[in-house]
Design a protein around this nucleic acid. Structure first.
Lengths: 223, 223
DNA sequence: AGGCGTGAACCTGTCAGACAGCCGGACAGC
DNA sequence: GCTGTCCGGCTGTCTGACAGGTTCACGCCT
C-alpha cells in the first residue's frame, strides 16, 4: 500500500473520504450527512466539489438526497452482502428447487440454438469426466447455463451465486462419488426436455434431479 | 415513457440521457464525449449540471475524464456489473413470485416473536406514511423482513437484491400512487397469515399481492 | 387554551461568470 | 528537420446569487 499514484482531484478525495465514513459505519445508516455548506467548510473546498462528491455517492447507491432536507446514508450493498453472504447447505438445498425449477421451465421455452449447443457440450463433457473436482465445475456450468438460458437475469444471477456457494462446500465433493452417474443421467433428461421445448418436462426433470441431490446431501449431513 | 412521472432533477435527466447513449452504443466505446460546454448548450442547462451528470457516469464506471482532454466512454461491460439496476422490470416481475411466495410460506412456519414485531411495526408505519419515497423504502423493508424471517439466507439475500433493484427503478415510484392503499391491505393479509402460522395462507396472500403488483407494473410499462 | 396560518431559517438545485492548470497542435526560428 | 514557444480548447475549482422545498416556532384568531 503505497500512496496514491495518480493525483486525485479534490472531488475524488472528498468522495473517498465520505465513502470511507459510510462504509466503515462511522456515519450510521439512515442518518443525515452534514449540509453541503458545512462539508464544504470542513474539507476546505467549494460547494461545487462537495456536490460532485455527493453525486458520486448517490450514483453508487450509498446515499439519497432530498431537496430541502439533506443527504442521507442508505443501507450499503457491500454491508448487506457481507452479512448475508454465507449460505448453509440446508439453505441451499431448500432454496434451489424454487429457483432452478422455474428457470428450467423458462429455458425450455426461450433457449437459443447457441445456448443449446453450450448445454450439449457441457453434458457430454461431464459424462467423460473422471476427476471429481472438474466434474463439480462442469456441474456448476450446466446449472448456470440453464439459468442464463431462462432469459431472466435474476435467475441467472441467483443460480450463479448458489453454484458459487456449493462449489465451496466439502459436502458437494463428498457426494460426487455416489451421485455422479445418476446425475449424468438426470442432466441428460433435463437437456432433452429443454431441447424439446417442453417447459413442463424440463421443470419435472429439474425437480427430480434436485430432489435426488437433496436426499443424497441430507444423508451425508446426518451421517 | 411519455410524461416525466417522477420529477427528475435536471442533473438526473441529463445523466439518464447520456447513460442511455452510452449503453445503447450510440456513443461508441472509447470515443470522446462532447465537451462540457457543448453538452451544456445541447441540453440547455448550466455546466454544473453537466458536470454532475458526468460525475455520475464516472462513478458508475461508464466514463473516464482526463483533465484538459475530455470525457471518454469506457468499456460498458464492466459498467453493467457495477450498476445496481441491472435487472429489468420484467425480470423482476417474473422472478419475484418464485422466490417471495415460498419465502412467505417458510416465514409463517419459522418466524420468531421478534420478527413478527418488526413486521407489525413496518405495516403500521406504511399505513400512516404519505411520502411515496418513504413508503417504497418501507415496502422494501417489509418484503426483506419476510425473507429474513424465512430463516433461509438464500431467500434473504435474493430478496434484498431484488428490492435494491426495484428501488432504483422509476416505475416503482410511479406505481405507488395507484397501488399504495391496495398494497397496504394486501400486506396486512400477508402479515395476518404469518402471524397465524399458516404457510398455505401466507403463500396465497403473497402470491395475490405480487400478482396485483405485476399487473399494475405491466400497465405502466405498456402505457 | 388550542388550533392555524405565516414567515423566517435552512437546505438543495441551478445558473452565470471567472480563473488556473493541463493538453495538443500550429507556427516561427534555428 | 527539429525544437521551443504560444495559443486555443478543455477540465478543475471558486464565488456569489437566486429559486424552490422543508421545518419549526411565533403569533394571531377563534
Amino acid at each position: 500500500m503505497s500512496r496514491p499514484l495518480a493525483r486525485l482531484s479534490a472531488a475524488e478525495a472528498v468522495f473517498n473520504a465520505i465513502r470511507e465514513d459510510i462504509e466503515s459505519g462511522t456515519i450510521p445508516v439512515g442518518s443525515k450527512l452534514s449540509s453541503e455548506a458545512e462539508l464544504s467548510q470542513r474539507y476546505g473546498v467549494s460547494r461545487s466539489v462537495i456536490r460532485e462528491a455527493l453525486r458520486s455517492c448517490t450514483a453508487l447507491g450509498l446515499t439519497v438526497t432530498r431537496t430541502g432536507k439533506g443527504t442521507f446514508v442508505k443501507a450499503s450493498k457491500v454491508a448487506s452482502d457481507l452479512t448475508l453472504g454465507q449460505y448453509s447447505a440446508r439453505d441451499l438445498t431448500e432454496a434451489r428447487p424454487h429457483i432452478e425449477v422455474p428457470a428450467a421451465g423458462l429455458a425450455a421455452e426461450r433457449r437459443t440454438p447457441e445456448e443449446l449447443e453450450v448445454l450439449r457440450a457441457v453434458v457430454s463433457a461431464m459424462a467423460a469426466e473422471t476427476d471429481p473436482e472438474s466434474w463439480v465445475a462442469l456441474d456448476s456450468s450446466f446449472h448456470a447455463a440453464i439459468a442464463r438460458a431462462s432469459g431472466n437475469k435474476v435467475f441467472a444471477s441467483v443460480v450463479a451465486d448458489i453454484r458459487d456457494a456449493l462449489a465451496h462446500q466439502s459436502e458437494t465433493l463428498n457426494m460426487v462419488a455416489d451421485r455422479q452417474h445418476a446425475s449424468d443421467v438426470e442432466h441428460q433428461q433435463i437437456l432433452a426436455a429443454i431441447e424439446a421445448g417442453s417447459a413442463e418436462k424440463a421443470r419435472a426433470a429439474m425437480a427430480h434431479h434436485l430432489e435426488a441431490v437433496g436426499v443424497a446431501l441430507d444423508s451425508i449431513l446426518n451421517s
